[in-house]
Amino acid sequence: MIVFLIKRLANAVLVMLAVALLAFLIFRFAGDPVELMANEQMSQADRIELREKLGLNDSFLTQYGRFVVNAARGDFGISYRNGQDVMTLIAERFPATMELALVATILSLLIGIPLGVVTAIHRGRWYSEGLQFVSIIGVSLPSFVVGILLILVFAVTLGLVPAFGRGDVVQLGWWSTGLLTASGRASLLLPSLALALYQITLVMRLVRAEMMEVLRSDFVKFARARGVPRRRIYFRHALRNCLMPVVTMTAMNFGSLIAFALITETVFQWPGMGMLFIQAVTFLDMPVMAGYLCIVSFIFVTLNTLVDIAYAVIDPRLRDATR
């Protein structure tokens, strides 16, 4: 298990170094930072001094090494746009995105898994086929369309929930949460649903396919021959054997949720990292873009590593193979 952990961690570090290289290359190839920072009045001497101060005359490797070391400490420099520390900017926006993605994930599991089980058990019934059909629509509708539709129906027409923003937030240390206030929770509802819809249909279809596979297996038939009640077979014996791919997909897609949240965030004017990134792109704010790229990749890689470890915990066969 320890060898396995070390191997996985080494892999993760390699991937992060590659990502850091990409982020670093943004600075080198997306224009001269000095030109971007400098204003009209700056003299040539000032520019050379700034170039020296920023370390832009050092060799490529030295600059990359410095970028990695700084990034590892959470230092991505300062925003070109408003001179604020990039890490502080991201940290301010991070809780909003995180809560959005978390709630969306929980929604997708709470709704997707039971729907998957039901459509697998009662396949052929009208409601199963109906759900299957609706799920195709769910998979193919872009999330901004879903978001706009949700706003139109629930916020504009019915007026049940706010159409944009986070509502009131409560500060818990550096973490700002909207989960503790009524307006915060109400504001969270639509964006998380818009973000989760795709995920719900994915989970449902995956669970359905896996369930149908597992229900054909010998150990399910043997469990029936042992007199195990159907419900227990479905939810204890079969479902647990389906969870592996669900865990993988959920964890991997959590990264995508955070990344794709930028569309949902734009539609709902949600003050998260995605909005920050969109603003950074329009202003060519490279340190913010590089920081965002590194942070999102870090979340991706961490989740992948955790999934591998979770595998070993769920499936005893893998636990032994890696011992």
Binding site: S217, D218, F219, K221, F222, A223, A225, R226, H237, R240, N241, I314, D315, P316, R317
Partner: peptide, 14 residues
């Protein structure tokens, strides 16, 4: 009941 293939008649996760 006893089934043909003992490799697949037991639930691997329990």
């Amino acid at each position: 009941a006893i089934f043909q293939d003992p490799l697949t008649s037991l639930n691997p996760l329990f």
